[in-house]
Design a protein around this nucleic acid. Sequence first.
DNA 1: ATGGTGTTTAGACATCATCCAGTATTGAAA
DNA 2: TTTCAATACTGGATGATGTCTAAACACCAT
Lengths: 148, 148
Amino acid sequence: MPHLTRSRFRHSLIAVKRDTAGLLREHGIQPSAQRVAVGEYVLFTDEHPSADLVWSRVRDNFPWISRATVYNTLNLFVEKGLLKTLDLADNAVVFDPRVERHHHFVDDEDGSIHDVPWEKVQVCNIEGLRGYQIRDYQVVMHGVKKKR
Amino acid sequence: MPHLTRSRFRHSLIAVKRDTAGLLREHGIQPSAQRVAVGEYVLFTDEHPSADLVWSRVRDNFPWISRATVYNTLNLFVEKGLLKTLDLADNAVVFDPRVERHHHFVDDEDGSIHDVPWEKVQVCNIEGLRGYQIRDYQVVMHGVKKKR
DNA sequence: ATGGTGTTTAGACATCATCCAGTATTGAAA
DNA sequence: TTTCAATACTGGATGATGTCTAAACACCAT
């Protein structure tokens, strides 16, 4: 299961920063300076950023990068399987570097999005649905984080 | 269960068209001509329209209605519980007059959205999730409609 | 008629995302 | 190392989506 392995690898902080370029190359992407800069942020964040948030974050270290490049790069990463897009709330697309299956919880107070591991929740009878060829599915939950 | 009853009522074609105004009034909305025109389309459609599609559809019968009025009316309907918004795909908010719980299937080929009845699919162990206070949830499926 | 409340309107504005044409960079071949 | 073709980057234009505002309008009670 290459995806799971890849993901675990990416999330182990030690091996990560120094090899973003290699990661891009493995996915058939020429690692330009701009793409590495975008990748170093977006492939390792868990804040589910919008495209413009990515732009803003990357400019902290790379002030001259253009908006079009960030959008192009994000779309390229999605096409090559490094990112997924989520359409969950706020009529804004956000990006998620966890490409393996998981569910999502949306905090309606602050709009934050949280990953819920695939095993925590089960969906039953979905194979029995007539008329649809299901390629992917997830549970989307809305609510608020518990105070504790 | 007032919601289910209300919904079934609304979807029974006979009782419907002649009483959109009454329906609005029951929900605390002054039924102006524009609001009734919007309601007669959006409260009985199953095509999950975006705001601008609503505008376009309503203008067929009501050519002088303004865009702002359609947006205002849709937001008012959501606030008063006649509609729900969905953020499922295509970075555009769409509206759904089925306010009772149900799931959604998104056709990735043509972008169409289909309602899946609540009973067809079950979600297990969702109450056991720690850290989240869940107010609402649904299963979102992606794929293609079966040819048949 | 008058005034008050609430609604509608057109257009301005803001944001999100893509497209385009010119420029720069890169990698491979000579 | 130089050249060239392919690829990538850039700023600005464009389009789509959504909100806001101020003025006009409609309706109702006085």
